[in-house]
Computed example of a mutant assay.
Amino acid sequence: MTPVDRAPDAADRVTEVLARGELVVHGRLADASNAVLYATATLGDRRVRCVYKPVAGERPLWDFPDGTLARREVAAYEVCRALGWQLVPPTVLRDGPYGEGMCQLWIGPGPHVPDTDPDTDASDTDASNADTSAADGRETRDVRDTDEEPGGPETEGPETDEDGHGVGELLALVDAESPEPGWRAVVRAQVDDGRTALLVHADDERLRRLAALDAVINNADRKGGHLLPLPDGRLYGIDHGVTFHTEDKLRTLLWGWAGEPMPEPVLAALRGLLAELADGRPLLVRLRELLSEGECQALRARTATLLRTGRYPRPGGEWPAIPWPIL
């Protein structure tokens, strides 16, 4: 099995399965604000575990148009690929059991689906054991994280081990006035019993790239739980539904480099992206299928501004800069 970012065509193979494979839903992830369904997509002898978020299961937001979150997630993947980075799992827009939605490669150990075979459609299982409903009202089961994988054909995707690495290697709350070497201060946060602690994140090259990506796509919700580090050193960011707004909405935990110069490799990636956002280029053609014209123009303007300043942005002041809850 080849991880998705170890061979030039690996991501394309995964997106083909995600886009064209038979999509079977096994359950709904508990505690998600929108409908987030655990599924598998199978094409011939290839199978991938995935997350399926149907548009019909999106809750309305006051500041984003209804029914657009799935397309924004796909746009985030397209922009990340154009930057030359593998920070967003392969993501496609497709039809599924509950209508059009975003389908994204599952990262990490698979969840446990109680009392059902992984190859059984959750909508066909006994409804008396289900406690959540899918987008169109059909019953699905809650699923929770475990290391279980679906049986059947070979499952493609990132390799993981049981030990895994957690968000704790990237984010921490520390009882100190300043961060230790290798960490960056973000903000003082209130914790239990009225105490305060210093929120810090790792001074990590992967996070530097992710912070730049968030600035480009105007990510309004970079929580700690949206960071998925793997034992082999790879890092993925997920949940990019509230992105690409025309107004400044950047809300993130990765403010440790605010106002500082971006590394040259990051600036080189931004120069390449700006070239691909020119009229007539395939990337812009694709993004116009996913975003409004105003959002595409704002994306191009943000990228140009980052290149002009050469620095990570600072909090704007008109929008809460830190997401809550932090994780």
Rank of each mutant, 00 (worst) to 15 (best):
A135Y: 02
G152S: 15
G57Q: 01
D117K: 01
R94F: 06
T146H: 00
R94L: 09
V79G: 07
Y52W: 09
D131S: 12
K53V: 03
G110L: 02
L105H: 09
A76E: 10
D124I: 11
D66I: 10
L105W: 05
S133P: 00
D119L: 15
D63H: 11
P158F: 06
G96I: 06
G110Y: 03
A122V: 15
V143T: 03
D95V: 08
D121H: 14
E149C: 01
G67E: 12
T125R: 09
E159N: 04
D131H: 10
P54D: 11
V74M: 08
C50N: 12
L61W: 11
T120M: 12
G67T: 12
W85L: 11
W62H: 01
D161A: 06
T116W: 02
V51M: 07
G84T: 05
T146A: 12
A75L: 03
A76F: 13
V92E: 08
D142G: 00
L87H: 03
D161L: 04
C50L: 13
L87W: 05
L105T: 04
Y77E: 05
R59F: 02
R138H: 08
Y77H: 15
A127K: 15
P60G: 06
E148F: 00
L61E: 11
E149H: 00
G101S: 01
T160E: 07
K53E: 13
R71K: 06
P153T: 13
Q86K: 02
E73P: 03
P111Q: 02
T132A: 09
G157V: 04
G57W: 01
L87C: 09
C80N: 14
V113K: 01
L83N: 09
Q104I: 10
A82Q: 07
R72P: 08
F64Q: 02
T125F: 05
R94D: 15
L87Q: 02
P150A: 12
V74Q: 05
L83A: 09
A82P: 13
D161E: 05
R71F: 04
A130G: 10
L105P: 03
V51C: 05
G57T: 00
D161F: 03
D161C: 07
T146M: 00
W106D: 05
R138N: 11
D66S: 15
R94M: 08
E139W: 14
G152C: 14
Y98D: 15
R81P: 13
A134N: 10
C50R: 04
S123E: 14
L61A: 10
P150E: 05
W106Q: 01
P97S: 13
G84W: 06
